[in-house]
Design a protein around this nucleic acid. Structure first.
Length: 587
RNA sequence: GCGGCCGUCGUCUAGUCUGGUUUAGGACACAGGCCUUCCAAGCCUGUGAUCCCGGGUUCAAAUCCCGGCGGCCGCACCA
């Protein structure tokens, strides 16, 4: 890329291939295209579905996690409560001389020594005043700044055509889970821990998205919210993954300016306190496995810990899982945030609905408690019409306080009213407490589905003998089998079509191709990553055997047509290797 | 959003500087046919571009000018 010979990088190649073969392309092309929006074609949609079902296999089935689907549009309250309305906007200022834009709060932090927390609280007007007071000029050209303005990166709309009710397109699917927490918890039989996952579209009105599938304005997010009791935060799955190694890029190293990667086991990471929650460590290990299963080797993955000011407003600790891609280096594919009880607390505060979970004690707590009962027969004649009000006030005060006051002074002053011993009855009783209410904590792994698709493509891409091959792991390949006649005459196409239809009926994703020569058809199939090619030749007409060709090694085996369904099912479930599919065959 | 470079069939590109010689040419890909007994062979035929969109200058615009959209790189942004 340095000299005149510009070799296109993998990103360019993948995007070109994706467009040409129908994996995905920029949407609205006929109107010039709009950046940040993408349309998946047949192959891309299938690939994405398969990646998502792989994730389900790993996270959903094995952990008994519940999947839900909630709306994309939500009333403004939801994102006010979640803190997004406050945090999703950034105050920006523009230099009037060189037109460069800066975050106003960042400038204040850097040049006026104002803390992050303070800077965040300032209104636009206050930002302007503080900037003027500190005489902050453009760091580039020392020009003066214009008025600070907010960029809101959520999509805003109104709900109902005539309504003033503001709605937002969700920037994450997590809130769809939190707002339904009470019902979801009930469906989980009120037993912690439990997890809820949602796979769906999210909207972020990015300022300038131009990295293909990596940054979209509308994209598919996979949010998994895992709720657990902070007093019983042990993870029952830890045993399964504690020996797994993680590559961590810790915040403390980042602060020192070091690029050091700490490579340690899940167990050690927890012991040393690098990862605060067991469940989070376990999900990180699972995420690493997922990416490995998608074809990304462990050394091309890492988890980078976010610095306090880089973290989302809701997170106590968070790691980004990053994958190395050729064009941009390390790119985030998933985020692992320890959201604690932030979201549930906020929704309880804003909605007034109790979001806590009831926990029964092993043994009910017994303790003595004092009760106070206003005696209306006495209060009535004295306070007349105000009696009811006084009685209510009496019920609201601490019985012990009343008792001790009466014991000391012979009366208790309740505002203006003098309460005498005969006005109330104070009793002490033993009460049993069966349990308590508390907020569960949440650990959240969150994946960008589209980014998974991209990295799967980039890591599948390779060149063999000048040909492009997408070496997808067999279980995510969007097309599983190709069926071809060796030549398109002498009844071979008819026979091949029979095999093709049989495999379709068996539930495989199959294509039939008789155009061009057999070599050309293999090449076309390799380019879209079809793992197996079945060729019908003259032998087939005699003994009903076909050859099966491996996409990656180009080796072939010969096997009976009648055995194909069983063999292929085994192969795609990783229960058989290519060599097990038949006898070696030389073409 | 800013600055630089750029935008011609699905892809790569010729033509743009110097407006007319172009029904915008080629290659690859794609489709049909012939051929073809295992890795993009060959031959024939065909589909396919109002030259990103809109406006302007001109007798005449792919070509010059303005605006928009889109792309790449850098800055900023990415909770």
């Amino acid at each position: 890329m340095t000299d005149g010979t510009k070799t296109p990088d993998k990103f360019t190649i993948i995007n070109e291939l994706a467009r040409r073969r129908g994996f995905f392309w920029q949407s609205y092309e006929i109107y010039g295209g709009v950046s940040g929006f993408v349309t998946y074609g047949f192959l891309g949609a299938k690939l994405k579905q398969k990646i998502e079902s792989k994730l389900r296999e790993l996270f959903v089935s094995k952990l008994g996690i519940l999947e839900i689907e909630s709306p994309v549009i939500s009333p403004s309250k939801v994102f006010e409560a979640s803190g997004h309305v406050d945090h999703f906007k950034e105050p920006m200022v523009e230099c009037q001389k060189c037109k460069k834009r800066f975050r106003a709060d960042h400038l204040l932090r850097e040049f006026a020594k104002i803390s992050e927390a303070e800077a965040e609280k300032l209104s636009l007007k206050e930002l302007k005043e503080t900037m003027e007071k500190n005489e902050i000029r453009c760091p580039e050209c020392s020009g003066t700044f214009g008025e600070p303005k907010y960029f809101l990166t959520m999509f805003k709309t109104t709900i109902g055509p005539y309504s003033e009710a503001v709605g937002y397109g969700r920037p994450e699917a997590a809130q769809g889970i939190f707002v339904e927490f009470r019902r979801l918890c009930e469906m989980a039989r009120e037993k912690l821990p439990f997890g809820v996952i949602q796979i769906g579209h999210a909207l972020r009105n990015e300022i300038s998205p131009r990295q293909g599938l990596i940054r979209l304005r509308e994209f598919t997010i996979i949010d998994l919210e895992f709720f657990f009791d902070p007093e019983e935060s042990d993870c029952f799955l830890l045993k399964n993954v504690e020996g797994e190694t993680l590559r961590l890029f810790l915040a403390e190293n980042k602060l020192r300016g070091s690029e050091e990667i700490v490579e340690i086991t899940v167990k050690e990471a927890l012991e040393k306190g690098y990862i605060k929650a067991e469940w989070q460590a376990v999900f990180m290990a699972l995420a690493k496995k997922l990416l490995a299963d998608l074809g990304v080797p462990p050394e091309k993955q890492r988890f980078i810990e976010k610095l306090p000011w880089e973290r989302a407003h809701y997170a106590l600790q968070s790691f980004d899982q990053e994958v190395y891609v050729e064009r941009w280096g390390w790119v985030e594919v998933s985020g692992h945030a320890y959201r604690t009880d932030y979201d549930l607390k906020r929704h309880m505060k804003f909605s007034g609905v109790d979001m806590r979970v009831f926990k029964e004690y092993e043994k009910p707590l017994e303790r003595e408690q004092a009760f106070i009962k206003p005696l209306m027969a006495k209060l009535g004649p004295i306070f007349k019409t105000e009696a009811a009000e006084v009685a209510e006030m009496i019920s609201g005060v601490d019985p012990c306080e009343v008792a001790s006051s009466i014991k000391k002074d012979g009366y208790y002053m309740l505002g203006e009213c003098k309460i005498l011993p005969e006005h109330v009855e104070i009793t002490r009783r033993k009460v049993k407490e069966q349990g308590k209410r508390f907020f569960p904590h949440v650990v959240e792994p969150s994946f960008g589905s589209d980014r998974l698709v991209y990295v799967a493509l980039e890591y599948a891409y390779r060149i063999k003998d000048d040909r492009a091959i997408l070496s997808f792991p067999r279980d995510i390949a969007p097309m599983q089998v190709g069926v071809y006649p060796l030549v398109s005459k002498d009844g071979l196409p008819e026979k091949a079509l029979q095999v093709y239809r049989m495999l379709l009926n068996e539930g495989f994703i199959v294509e039939y191709d008789e155009a061009g020569s057999i070599g050309r058809r293999y090449a076309r199939a390799d380019e879209i990553g079809i793992p197996l090619g079945i060729t019908v030749d003259y032998e087939t007409l005699k003994d009903n055997t076909v050859t099966i060709r491996d996409r990656d090694s180009w080796k072939q085996v010969r096997t009976r047509v009648i055995d194909l369904p069983e063999l292929l099912h085994k192969y795609f479930r990783w229960k058989a290797n290519f060599e097990d599919l038949g006898k070696p065959f030389e073409g």
